[in-house]
């Protein structure tokens, strides 16, 4: 048992001359809800991409569940229990909600080509169970009954929920949510806070989210890390962050803080 589910040390990502993530140390205690915030272009999504194996950092170390993820193929990282959603929704549009969820069960299902063609009893049972599990997950995220709707025909809010359901189908240990409340109305955002707690408490999933809505961030997270221009400028509990001078400056600008005084 490691105490930290995720351990990133001195992670640096460089695009040509631009340093997108600059020697960031970052860890996520198992079972916690952590937020990554910062102004646009601070390197948050880039950091997600490093964790999920899309980018290889120019140096640094990332351990997930005690094992390094660097150089591991994205699908293997996903199968080992790291699931994510996307800032700009990336569902499989021409597939139904239920199929979308079942795609993410891929690593956990066993049927091969032959058993699928022959339809062995085992394969049929597996498919039936997968379908039921998808139904259950859709209920869990609050969009029961849309199983056979095509993803691209769902309303925007439901699509965001479907993305979470799909990510949960991977049976993740760590769930990465990239701006999950973007485009939600205040009411939906409020229920989202409870939802994240439900994910953690009922499913035992550790959650890391990128979020702009400060109300959500302060309400949901136990720890917050702030990035600016790729560097970590603050880290701590919501209370710490709220009163941190550098964070206020990063968000409002120097003149803004003066005006606030």
């Amino acid at each position: 048992m490691t105490e930290n589910l995720l351990d990133a040390r001195a992670v640096r990502v460089q695009f040509g001359g631009l340093v997108a993530v600059n020697d960031v140390d970052f860890n996520i205690p198992t079972g916690s809800i952590v937020a990554l915030i910062g102004p646009n272009g601070a390197g948050k999504t880039t950091f997600f991409n490093v964790l999920t194996g899309l980018y290889t950092p120019s140096h640094g170390q990332v351990d997930f569940d005690g094992k390094s993820v660097l150089g591991v193929a994205p699908h293997k990282i996903a199968a080992s229990g790291m699931a994510r959603t996307f800032q700009n929704i990336r569902l499989f549009g021409a597939m139904t909600a239920s199929e979308n969820v079942m795609v993410a069960m891929h690593p956990h299902l066993k049927s091969g080509v032959l058993s699928t063609i022959v339809r062995t009893p085992k394969q049929r049972r597996e498919e039936r169970d997968a379908r039921l599990m998808a139904k259950e997950l859709l209920e869990f995220v609050g969009i029961a009954g849309v199983d056979d709707e095509f993803a691209k025909n769902l309303p925007y809010g439901d699509q965001r929920r479907l993305e979470v359901a799909r990510a949960l189908a991977l049976r993740p240990k760590l769930l990465l949510l990239d701006e999950p409340t973007a485009g939600m109305n205040p009411q939906e955002s409020a229920t989202f806070t409870q939802f994240v707690h439900r994910v953690r408490d009922q499913r035992g999933v550790t959650v890391l989210l990128i979020e702009h809505d400060m109300k959500v961030v302060m309400g949901v997270s136990e720890r917050i890390t702030v990035l600016e221009y790729g560097s970590k400028i603050a880290e701590g509990t919501p209370q710490d962050i709220r009163s941190d001078q550098r964070v206020i400056e990063a968000y409002l600008g120097k003149s803004g803080t003066e005006a606030a005084k």
Binding site: V13, Q14, F15, A20, G41, T45, N49, T56, S58
Partner: peptide
């Protein structure tokens, strides 16, 4: 912005 060179061995 989000283009990177893979530096795999």
């Amino acid at each position: 912005m989000a283009t990177a060179e893979r530096t795999a061995p």
